[in-house]
Computed example of a mutant assay.
Amino acid sequence: MALAVLDCAHFAAGECRSCTWLGRAYDDQVAAKEASARALVDAPGMRWLPPVTSPPAGFRNKAKMVVAGTAATPTLGILGPDGAGVDLRDCALHTPGIVAALPVLAELVRRADLTPYDVASASPVRQRGELKHLLVTESPDGELMVRLVVRSTAIEARVRKHLPWLRASLPAVRVVTLNVQPEHRAVLEGDREVVLTDDDTLPMRLGAVALHLRPRSFFQTNTPVATALYAEAAQWVAAIGPRRVVDLYCGVGGFALHLVAPGRRVSGIEISADAVASAERSRAEAGLPSAAVDFVAGDATAPEHAGLLAEADLVVVNPPRRGLGTDLARRLEETGAAHLLYSSCNPETLARDLADLVSYRPVRGRLFDMFPQTGHAEVLVLLERTAQRSE
């Protein structure tokens, strides 16, 4: 029997259409995603494991809330077609901890008199208001990272003044920052982060591994499914037994740290220096030596990493939605790696990349429903080399 459709008053009223598949029963959503992934990626002899499902609600560990209205009566959610704020504090997708935190954060806006940014004031001389977004992340331990995206640091003193009240009212808060985004354009966050608390990372404990998230670090939005994804990858890699692993796009070390094993060396490459610092901290806390797993800050597609790739028995790739692209696929073709482990949030670009990886064939795949109520999904695919590289 199909699971019931998730009820959402905001969707029914036409206020929010972010969950494009909300009108479909959850098990039908999963079946449709798997069918689409198989149609794009399937190959002769490939084995598909049953999909990893998610709770259909209460799974999203990060809230990205536009702040609108006034300081006295703010809305936290999205902007409607008329530019007015639509309050989504009760969004059913967010974890219970985030849902409980949002009213307290709305009260912080009121107490500290944090005027929401007016998106209608386009020119610099007319720009009004300071607070653009509230970004809230919850860890598996129930701790929170709260980021206030602001036009400038003009409100920093007011936020600092009310931090004791916030921490007393919301004890789960571990990290609070101001992210400065001065430009008048549709950009979620800026390059400058002002940390207001002693702690500057949020530990995400996934089994035996704790990944430290800094404010601008990427992490999967669905913690239970991300935990299953890393565990599955570790099982597949254990069955292969590679001695040298290179993890491109390693982020804060999710795959790399889960793939450490006796007799194996793992290297992660990540363009964000902050993410590399987080990965190194997680490695140190886990008691792992750099000889077992090391991290390099740099562009995964840069030619200077050719030496690392040449050593690899297994290459892990977890690219952005745009995929690997022809140039990196060609470089992977030129390596001697016997296997590739590809984690994709976009099966369409995955299929395109597989067409470029002509020396490899997919042998195993599994869908991870990271994004219920939408058509998006994560797909993990193991590829094995079927042809030797040409010299």
Rank of each mutant, 00 (worst) to 15 (best):
C91V: 04
R243A: 15
L308F: 13
G97V: 00
V125Q: 15
C16M: 08
A39F: 11
G253D: 10
P215L: 01
T349Y: 06
V99D: 06
T374H: 01
A226Q: 07
G23L: 00
E183H: 14
R243S: 15
V187S: 11
A234E: 09
I240F: 04
L357A: 09
L170W: 09
L170Y: 09
A32F: 01
I98N: 01
V187L: 14
C8W: 01
A13G: 07
R243H: 14
R185L: 13
V194T: 09
L288C: 10
A355G: 10
A172Q: 13
G14V: 02
L309N: 01
A231Q: 13
P362G: 03
F371D: 10
A25L: 00
A300M: 11
P50H: 11
F218H: 12
I269A: 02
L170N: 08
E232W: 12
P203M: 05
V5C: 01
A312K: 00
Y249P: 12
V237H: 01
V316Q: 04
R151N: 04
K161V: 08
L114D: 02
R352G: 02
T301A: 15
V260W: 06
D27F: 00
L22C: 00
E280T: 08
N318H: 14
P320C: 09
L354V: 06
F11Y: 12
N179S: 07
L206G: 11
A39V: 05
R128E: 14
Y117D: 00
L135P: 02
E384C: 01
G251E: 10
R111F: 12
R128A: 15
G263A: 05
M370R: 06
L88Y: 04
T153N: 13
L131P: 03
A72L: 13
W48T: 06
P262C: 03
L206K: 09
V175D: 00
T326F: 15
L22A: 04
P320N: 08
A338K: 11
E15K: 11
L144R: 04
S359V: 09
M65A: 11
V159T: 03
P124N: 06
A168K: 14
V125C: 14
T374D: 06
L131R: 03
